[in-house]
Design a protein around this nucleic acid. Structure first.
Lengths: 230, 230
DNA sequence: ATAATAGTGTCTGTGAGACATTATGTA
DNA sequence: TACATAATGTCTCACAGACACTATTAT
């Protein structure tokens, strides 16, 4: 090992909303030691020899190279570093939160989605400190969902208010009043972040749903000036 | 350079509130190449040979080793990595925001406080991408000041409402209604985050000031459920 | 008609914004 | 007394929370 350098990488916590309305984490079966054959977060090492122009670019590359998936949202969560997280020695990992569309599907058998709750509850164990990274990313998502439009990045390009409600409830882990969400969506519509497509979805029963479209007007999510569930 | 490892470090944006009520950044005159003799952010390299148990510990060490200062608040802001920021090659830096008490004084001539505004305006240039790191830290502080008690960590152990108001205005860069801040301080008092010491400060003119004490009940700052300046 | 789901309306409570008023010290 | 600064009171507005009510489809 070099005198002044250190092992560093990025790990991606990529989340998808299942049909049942639950959050799922993308895992990859490791092809190399350490922990070969175990299901872990997708990630890549970063060092000068890679073509990455930046750390953020390395994160995007990790998801494209390993899973051929393009996230709808990507945000750096935190960097952890210590001597215990990797058997190869003192190492750094920068954790990213990625939000995928609900139709994101694994391309091969080395990829799998598992329920976020299974990891949080410890039923699904992960190598390295990946369980901790998942916790950090989930906390970030939950925290920002209280005052931003972040959960909308988990939806398909056309979505109903009911689907948006499901996304918020999955991110927050608790029920949300639909009237409150409607108010927020209306405020976003006034600023062109939401467009009413005019199309309708006709479910088996009940009144048809208005289909909305999410049109982010900035890189960051829309910020509301008040918290949910205060 | 090793095949898989990379140069990594932490850099600290340590802020102090001047008597004039303006934010100042702690700079250190570099003792080594690169950029020897230039004023830059204090920081340390991280690698397995150091005794740091974690990246956060390395950040705390950077401030103690280089400036003998203990911050009242320390938070990781972001990690940047690219091939251009350091002349030695592709490198990583994790940026930390530190908030100091107003009586924090440089211990020797290698340390200096400069106005945050001078750096933001480009009047004071910094080596590496340190100006960008300062911007990231200042953005984090400004963002969180809207909905949290973060500015209070810039105050002495006993402080008046007027001083707290100055801290908020410095962090936000705009005026705040004192009645709004009083309401927030009162809500913190109800939850034991603020204590009325009963002591008074008697300025040359005017009604004496109640002296308050900040008693954080958690590692994170107090979060309000509504934004200032919406 | 009935069931099911979508969407609106109404009322309440909280806290920020703005500003007037009162309180308490010094010169 | 006048003056300066601290602290409180009042009113409005925006928006979340709760829940009732209306609307629109299929069977």
């Amino acid at each position: 090992m070099s005198a002044v350098e250190v092992l560093a990488g990025v790990d991606i916590v990529a989340l998808r909303l299942s049909e049942a309305g639950r959050l799922q984490v993308l895992l990859l079966c490791r092809q190399r030691e350490p922990y070969e054959g175990q299901w872990a977060l997708p990630g890549v090492l970063v060092n000068g020899r890679c073509a990455d122009v930046s750390l953020d670019a390395a994160a995007a590359r990790a998801l494209v190279d390993k899973a051929r998936l393009q996230p709808q949202y990507l945000e750096q969560v935190a960097t952890v570093g210590n001597g215990a997280r990797d058997p190869r020695g003192w190492s750094l990992s920068t954790c990213y939160l990625a939000l995928l569309a609900p139709d994101a599907e694994p391309q091969d058998e080395h990829l799998r989605f598992v329920e976020l709750q299974a990891i949080m509850a410890g039923q699904q164990s992960l190598p390295f400190d990946h369980a901790q990274l998942v916790r950090l990313a989930a906390e970030r998502l939950q925290g920002k969902s209280v005052y931003s439009s972040l959960p909308l990045y988990l939806l398909a390009s056309r979505f109903s208010v009911t689907e948006a409600l499901g996304a918020y409830q999955a991110c927050l882990g608790q029920p949300v009043q639909h009237t409150t969400l409607r108010g927020r969506l209306e405020r976003m519509r006034a600023q062109s972040w939401i467009v009413d497509t005019g199309e309708k979805n006709y479910p088996k029963m009940g009144r048809p749903q208005t289909l909305l479209q999410h049109c982010p007007q900035a890189d960051e999510a829309f910020i509301f000036d008040r918290s949910l569930l205060a």
